[in-house]
C-alpha cells in the first residue's frame, strides 16, 4: 500500500524519540547525566540520548589518543630527555620540527641536548611519527586538545613544549610501564655485562698471573 512505507519511516523516527526518554524514566530524571553513567550512555549498550555535554563533562580519552607532541623532562634534574639526535625532525612528514644541537661554548664540540627545539603548532598534524621513532622516548604525544587561540599558532620553543615525566606517566600508563621495563632490562643487561666483564677481567688477570709464574718449576 502506498504510504505505508512513509508511516513505517515515521515510526522509526518516533521510536528513536521515545527511546530518549526510556532511560530517563527508568533511572529517574537527572540521574542519567551523572559522571558515573557517562560510560554507560556512551557505550555499546547505550540507548537514547547520546550527547556528551562537553564543557561540563568530558569523554575519557584512550591512552593512545594524540594531538600535539611535547618534550619529556626529568623532574629531579630538570633536564630534557632529548639528546638532540634529530630523528624526530627527520621522521616528521610535514617537517614542522626545527632542532638545534647544543655546543660546548669553549671547545665547540656538540653536546647531547638541544639548544633550541621548535615546533610549528600551526603546521603540526599530530600524526605521532616523532614519538614513534624517537629512540630515547623523549618526545610524546599530548592528549590535550583545548588549544584554540585568538592568534595564529606558530613556533613554540622548549619552554612551552616541556612537560614533566610524571605527566607522561599519568596520561600514558602503559607506555610508561613499557619504558620502565625496558630501562630495567637495560640496566640488568648492563649490570650483567659489567659483572661478566669483571669476571672476564678477573679470569684474564688470573691467567696473566699464571703466565707470569715461572714455568721452570715443574720441568
Amino acid at each position: 500500500m502506498y504510504g505505508f512505507g512513509v508511516l513505517k519511516t515515521l515510526g522509526i523516527a518516533f521510536y528513536h524519540f521515545v527511546l530518549t526518554y526510556v532511560d530517563d524514566v527508568k533511572m529517574g530524571f537527572g540521574k542519567r547525566y551523572t559522571p558515573e553513567h557517562l560510560p554507560e550512555r556512551q557505550g555499546v549498550e547505550g540507548r537514547g540520548i547520546y550527547t556528551v555535554r562537553y564543557p561540563k563533562e568530558r569523554l575519557p580519552l584512550p591512552e593512545r589518543s594524540r594531538n600535539h607532541p611535547f618534550l619529556v623532562y626529568i623532574e629531579e634534574t630538570g633536564k630534557l630527555k632529548c639528546t638532540a639526535c634529530g630523528i624526530c625532525a627527520q621522521a616528521c612528514p610535514v617537517q614542522c620540527i626545527w632542532i638545534e644541537r647544543a655546543k660546548d661554548p669553549e671547545t665547540g664540540k656538540p653536546l647531547s641536548y638541544p639548544a633550541a627545539f621548535h615546533i610549528d603548532q600551526g603546521l603540526c598534524i599530530g600524526c605521532g611519527m616523532c614519538a614513534e621513532f624517537c629512540p630515547f622516548d623523549s618526545i610524546k604525544m599530548d592528549i590535550e586538545y583545548e588549544n584554540a587561540s585568538y592568534t595564529r599558532p606558530g613556533f613554540v620553543g622548549i619552554e612551552e613544549l616541556k612537560k614533566p615525566e610524571s605527566y607522561h606517566a599519568k596520561i600514558h600508563p602503559t607506555d610508561y610501564a613499557r619504558e620502565m621495563e625496558e630501562k630495567r632490562l637495560k640496566e640488568e643487561r648492563k649490570r650483567k655485562a659489567a659483572a661478566a666483564k669483571a669476571a672476564k677481567a678477573k679470569a684474564a688477570a688470573a691467567k696473566k698471573e699464571a703466565a707470569k709464574r715461572p714455568p721452570d718449576k715443574t720441568s
Binding site: G86, Q95, W98, A116, H118, G154
Partner: peptide
C-alpha cells in the same frame, strides 16, 4: 627529499 636542511638551524631562528 625530506628532511630539509633548514630544520637543523645553526645558531639561528627557525623561519616560516
Amino acid at each position: 627529499t625530506k628532511p630539509y636542511r633548514s630544520r637543523y638551524p645553526k645558531g639561528g631562528h627557525p623561519i616560516y
